[in-house]
Design a protein around this nucleic acid. Structure first.
Ligand SMILES: [Mn+2]
Ligand SMILES: [Mn+2]
Ligand SMILES: [Zn+2]
Ligand SMILES: [Zn+2]
Lengths: 126, 126
DNA sequence: TTTTAACTTGCGAATCACTTGCAAATTACG
DNA sequence: CGTAATTTGCAAGTGATTCGCAAGTTAAAA
């Protein structure tokens, strides 16, 4: 683990919500080149230390977000007003996914889920 | 409905799986400019005639895929070998989504789900 | 410890999927 | 028709991400 990779992994570990490559590039803009950040993310995802998903929001456009990988994966809610994520807890879709997989004879190796809307804090402010 | 918009909507109606903007640009490359295709897609999605989701695959990169919108939305499986979609049927996540929404006090207005892996046809070929 | 091979990084250019400005072409409508 | 509103093509612009390559580091061999 090089210094750049360690720093990227630490930043994602400390963040309590998914972090985009762009956010990491901003955070480390005086330390590492964006190409290095992107390469570190690929490296870490290849080593199964990170999971990622792509999400589009009006404010930030289409970006890939990264979270620590653990055995028990979780899903996220994205607020369309404040653009923060809320943890939806551990995945509860395993049974349904297994059911769909069986029905169609598919070998499902992964799934992506996220919800969007307005978070409680933003709803209050309306 | 202009001619371009009609043609785009027809193409998506006839396709029995999600269609990417790029596929439509290729299909209509002698008829319409890509900008027109993209604008037609935005128009149709704004008029609630289309739904879309973003998916990344190794072969085609990150693209937005479009399907006809109906009251009952459905979810899709994407084969990482042949890059075709399989219909997973109508959404079965409503209860779980309502549950997550209630637990966190979120106003969930939409969710995205898709699964990836290998389809039966491709599995046979191995 | 020097030698050498392997890997990592920064920088600049390139890609790729869109998006936008603007003038020309269509369409809507009084 | 005659004019206003909308749509389209073309070319240029964006923004996220990727790539080539030479320089910097690290690791392994001798
Ligand atoms: Mn899950
Ligand atoms: Mn659903
Ligand atoms: Zn919010
Ligand atoms: Zn397949």
């Amino acid at each position: 683990m090089t210094k750049a990779r360690t720093h990227v992994l630490e930043a994602i570990t400390q963040a309590k919500e998914p972090v985009s490559a762009r956010q990491l590039c901003e955070k480390f803009q005086s330390d590492y080149d964006p190409a290095t950040i992107y390469r570190a993310l690929h490296y870490l995802e290849g080593k199964d230390r990170l999971d990622s998903f792509i999400l589009h929001c009006s404010e930030h456009g289409t970006e890939r977000y990264y979270v620590l990988r653990s055995n028990e994966h979780r899903h996220w809610f994205h607020c369309e007003r404040c653009h923060r994520f809320t943890d939806l807890g551990l995945c509860r879709f395993d049974d349904l996914v297994a059911q769909m997989s069986a029905e169609k004879g598919l070998a499902i190796t992964s799934h992506t889920f996220y919800a969007t809307g307005i978070c409680p804090e933003c709803r209050q402010k309306i």
